[in-house]
């Protein structure tokens, strides 16, 4: 297994999840950064940010044009391993409004293949408020299934937080050990709501200790699950440090 280069190993996804309860539902967190809901045979993915590289290129900053394929390959690995009946993309699936239009034909075909025989739900995000063009799937602003609500941006209204599954913030967490700090993308949850890490290849992370998270989770009353090479690393909030 270690004979493969690291970026190839990433695509060999082992469908073993870390089960947790959110609003009474049992769901599985996976180290690839996706959520697996076995009862509904559903995979949930946040912040794919397809075509981020080309979005920057239109403005003169020539980031590598390989972010979409890198994200797609990782996504294909996940699909192979879990073979879900339904996929929910939690918004910001494309980096900008024209992103889905710019999507090169080969990548479009690859994505279409992944969508075959599956229910596919695009939740809108601030980067992609409109349905993607020339792609299958249903587009919604938010959707509620069996006690869980899927929307892009977490709601600051506490009344709406129960069972909320969202993305948008690109959570990352930092742990310190032997004088060295380790920062990783992570899931963050208080058992009531869950925020997913960003899945896209060129997406950075925002520390969960940042002010942006304070209206969403009570201080020190949440856990972060850091993404590792082949497992998740759970930490309670009191063990995390800010940037």
């Amino acid at each position: 297994m270690n004979l493969l280069p690291k970026h190839m190993r990433e695509f060999m996804v082992v469908p073993v999840c870390h089960d947790i309860q959110v609003n009474g539902q049992t769901i599985g967190l996976h180290e690839s950064g996706i959520l697996w809901w076995p009862d509904e045979s559903t995979i949930i993915i946040a912040d794919l940010h397809f075509e981020k590289g080309s979005s920057y290129a239109t403005r003169g900053q020539m980031l590598p044009p390989y972010d979409t394929i890198a994200t797609l390959e990782k996504l294909a690995g996940v699909m192979d391993a879990f073979d879900p009946a339904r996929v929910i993309c939690l918004g910001d699936s494309f980096h900008d409004k024209e992103g889905s239009d710019r999507l090169p034909a080969t990548y479009r075909a690859m994505l279409a293949t992944l969508q075959l025989n599956r229910e596919w739900i695009w939740v809108t995000g601030n980067h992609d408020p409109l349905p993607p063009v020339r792609l299958c799937g249903e587009t919604v602003d938010e959707v509620t299934i069996g006690g869980l609500t899927f929307r892009h941006e977490p709601s600051e209204d506490p009344a709406r937080s129960a069972g909320e599954i969202c993305g948008h913030l690109h959570p990352a967490a930092k742990v310190r050990r032997y004088g060295r700090a380790i920062r990783r993308a992570c899931f963050v949850t208080d058992g009531t709501r869950l925020i997913l890490p960003a899945f896209g290849a060129l997406t950075g992370g925002l520390n969960v200790m940042d002010d942006a998270f304070s209206p969403l989770f009570e201080k020190r009353r949440f856990s972060a699950f850091l993404l590792g090479d082949n497992r998740l690393y759970p930490f309670t909030a009191s063990r995390l440090v800010s940037d």
Binding site: H7, P64, Y66, D67, I69, A201
Partner: peptide, 15 residues
């Protein structure tokens, strides 16, 4: 730093 690390990873893997 974060974004240049990501660019490095993507570039190393693909070109």
């Amino acid at each position: 730093t974060v974004s240049s690390d990501l660019i490095y990873d993507v570039l190393r893997a693909h070109e």
